[in-house]
Design a protein around this nucleic acid. Structure first.
Lengths: 129, 129
DNA sequence: CTTGACCTTCCCCTGCACTGGAAGGTCCAA
DNA sequence: TTGGACCTTCCAGTGCAGGGGAAGGTCAAG
């Protein structure tokens, strides 16, 4: 199948597919006589895996690692477990940071709306920040 | 005061200060005979405002907007309130998204650790993703 | 035979907030 | 006078995941 068909079948773009190939996530496909990329149907499930992994928040670099282990003939189970654990820790940390920031901003915003009648001191930039 | 002093006084770098000037957050300072930037002491509180705004998660573009209103002689109160409200909505949305993602990843990770003894099917990339 | 849709490679651009380094000028102390 | 610390401008790069568009080749239909 040609690159445009594959893009449509997987909901991505030809640009992205060439980029994935360049980035080592997709193997270099065969070429037709005219030099067109000619993908085997199985590539669709590989793309689906890439999509699922992206949905889990893995970077292309991490996905490439998994695929390389798999392509090397090994089962990437342990590596995947580790990546997922790391991702979970990251998410917990990110969420905690955002919640703390949310508290700060909510306080600032509350001050900014309730104290409103007092006009800002022209000499300072902003009394709320 | 020279740029190096200001950088040290405000905990930033000379690079960042020139960048802020270029980006319209700092006015072009006077120059000494040798062409060195010569900042007035008041600039320190402007930098402090920039730092506080960054801590609240505002982008440099948003901070520049506030400063431009202020520099135009107006009180940026309403604009600040709006920016803070928007920021709060953004944070709520981001937190919700991350929490949903966290649920997904936690499930994947749980599956990956408990189902472990069953080896992966060599024909697929990974049974967990 | 030509039109239009598809394909190829190539290089640059995006947003964000800077950082690094080159090439050169200035100032102060030893 | 020389060394080192500071300053200047300008250009380029960082990380992430591609997107935009040029210049040119290919293929099927009308």
């Amino acid at each position: 199948m040609r690159i445009g068909e594959l893009a449509e079948a997987t909901g991505t773009t030809t640009k992205a597919l060439r980029f994935y190939e360049e980035a080592g996530l997709l193997p270099s496909p065969d070429r037709t006589g005219a030099g067109y990329r000619d993908y085997p149907p199985e590539i669709i499930s590989r793309l689906a895996f890439i999509r699922r992994s992206q949905s889990a928040g893995l970077t292309l670099a991490q996905i490439r690692e998994i695929l390389q282990i798999r392509d090397g003939g090994q089962a990437p189970c342990e590596h995947v477990q580790e990546l997922l654990s790391d991702r979970l820790s990251d998410l917990d940390r990110q969420i905690a940071e955002l919640q703390e920031l949310r508290g700060t901003v909510a306080q600032l915003q509350a001050d900014a709306t309730t104290v409103e009648p007092a006009r800002c001191d022209p000499a300072t930039v902003c009394r709320y920040l």
